[in-house]
Amino acid sequence: MTTATGLADARLRKKAKREGILQQAWTRRADYLYVLPAILVMLVVIAYPIYYTVDLSFFNTPPGLQLRDKVFVGLNNYVVILGSDVVWRVTVNTVIWTFFSTVFSFALGLGSALALHRDFAGRGVMRAILIIPWVVSAVAASYIWKWIYHSDFGVIGAVLVGLGLAAHPPNFIDSVSTVLPSLIVVNVWREFPFAMIMLMAGLQTVPEQLLRAAKVDGASAWQRFWHVTFPHLRGVSTVTILLLAVSNFNSFIIPWIMTGGGPSNASHIWITHIYELAFGRQRWGIASAYSVLLFLILMSLGYFYVRALSSGDRKERGA
């Protein structure tokens, strides 16, 4: 009896809620019309490819057959991926690549933002200079860095040998142990200006009077940063880190152009591996299964990103 009443109540609440949503939708129908074209475009250019990728991930696509002759294999591609030795190696590479690229880009961006937040002569010029790596095309940057790192006649090697600091040019990208850290350095160099810009914007929101009051109270520079500045940067930091993480997880240009995932697959990350499977080996089915898994990982990061943004909105409304 109690249960029946409870269920009935729940149904009533659901109905009321549904009516509420419908009512709201009707009231805001003009808003929906405004965003309708964008939604339609997204359905075509995003939703359909996602659907097609998911669909393709259930098929085997032998390289000797056309795609239309694909063979349904159910979840087999996912089983193959999870049982493959390569996937674990590529995953470890991807985690290392994403984690260190994100952490170092953020740390360097934060340091630069704090330095440039202070007033000094030439600050504008310094800002412009530091933004250059982010503005430079990733393709051009990759080729330049390839020559800087070149294991036989690269710039770094020539300088070190010229100064007598090394007998031979160091091996940066032709060694399985140094290739990934070397690529991470390039990625951090390219990405830290983005973190710097975001955090510089965040620093504008730190109330000046709070910093002055803390100074008057005898707080050290570190204490002022940790207890006043950093809490104000928490929101923008979360968003920046999430955006960097998503971008790094998806990063293709630098590893592909500089090493093509080599040597011996030591710099293959998920996205380059997927590209090679699809376009180099024509294993569209298995590449699609990889893509679906990558999509799920990125969507979960996206969820946290949206949550971080919404929490900012909620705080603003609360204030």
Partner: peptide, 22 residues
Amino acid sequence: PETPEIMNIVVPDMLQNALTGT
């Protein structure tokens, strides 16, 4: 039909695996 995959991926992989000591 399998030649491009063998020549462009498998053969270089073999060389790289041996030359890097992997």
